[in-house]
Design a protein around this nucleic acid. Structure first.
Lengths: 205, 205
DNA sequence: TAGATTGTTAATCGATTAACAATC
DNA sequence: TAGATTGTTAATCGATTAACAATC
């Protein structure tokens, strides 16, 4: 597993492989060949084998991959073989849906703090969380050593929130705000903008 | 605008350009050079110019791009210069957040029908929508001529929902369900899985 | 005109795939 | 052993970028 520098595009596919393996395990499957996995994901089997080869040898010739084993390896590679704390900023409809979305917890991502700047909301409960004021973000994030954050605030405050998060030590941000964030290169950002996703498909209508 | 066959990866960037142009217009800007836009988006100016060149000539040497004009052209190219009807399947927390997310309407995507299969929910109101039963999906979608759908149901019913939608005439699906859908090649799918997005970043922690 | 920036070409860079020896 | 599938190489394919003539 001497993974010098693996292209980001490959890292991006590993979670999709992992998700498929989880599903196969739930179905009771034990072994899978790259070809069958590829068919399920709509990609080529060579790509799967090549992607995995960046990290080691996980299969067996003539047989395929032991699903449980490959899953554990992928979880280690992606560093999701552990529990991770996540901060959520924004307690609106979207924040509410995120906070209650069981898939995060089920995958080891635990929302441990919810922030909002609306005085009406601060101190109130959103599900099992008490909403904290934005001004406490730096200290709470620093003291809890939180490295992951989700931004679910409107576009016009997203950059400001990102700046505060990064200063407090956050190293990866999942942003639902419809703007491109300006961040230092050591910080990773992923965007979810449903409008952009829809607009990527209307071209083909 | 003789756009024979433009690579999908280029189509995928156009909505991001469009979003940035909208923001610039809101700020009162009238002209922008590819270099400044590139800096804002963290990409190269050559890429922006090359991407646009697939569709025509939209800029002026020595000056840059007239933002309003370029925006209109991009809207036409992406076919978002019109109002589009969208069906939403799934009236849980996520569906609720989607239905109330003003950004869809603001960008011409109008949710016109919300479906759920939970008898407890059918007939109830979710905001301004009355929730329809799943069994009415085929007829409602066909009769309204809906081409776009958003899937916000659990993984285990997503494929079944997709099959019904496609049979009813839907041509593009935005899926929040954490599975890879199996669809005919004429149907476009985009996925939003926040867990996958987070897992794409933990590798770098 | 002088300066700036586009649109486009050609070169570079990187990703995907076909194919097959190795091997279970 | 015979059959199947991996891991890997080399070739192909496609995307990005540097550079500059054209031109506003």
């Amino acid at each position: 597993m001497i993974s010098a520098d693996v292209p980001d595009i490959i890292i991006g596919r590993l979670p999709v492989y992992l998700r498929a393996l989880n599903l196969l395990l739930e179905e009771g499957r034990e072994i899978i060949a790259s070809q069958e996995l590829a068919d399920k994901l709509g990609i080529s089997s060579a790509q799967i084998r090549k992607d995995l080869s960046h990290f080691g040898e996980f299969g067996k010739q003539g047989t395929g991959y032991e699903i449980k084993y490959l899953r554990e390896q992928l979880r280690k590679i992606l560093k999701v073989d552990r529990e991770l704390d996540v901060a959520l900023v924004g307690a609106g409809d979207l924040g509410h849906a995120i906070a209650h979305h069981g898939n995060f917890d089920r995958n080891g991502f635990h929302i441990v703090a919810v922030f909002d700047h609306n005085p009406q909301k601060i101190g109130a409960n959103m599900g099992r969380f008490q909403i904290l004021g934005s001004e406490s973000m730096p200290t709470v994030i620093q003291e809890m050593g939180i490295q992951l954050a989700i931004i679910a605030v409107p576009a016009d405050s997203a950059q400001q929130v990102a700046d505060i998060l990064i200063k407090a030590g956050v190293r990866a941000i999942l942003s639902y705000a419809p703007i491109t964030l300006n961040v230092p290169s050591k910080v990773r950002v992923q965007y979810i903008d449903p409008v952009v996703h829809l607009q990527r498909m209307t071209y083909y209508l």
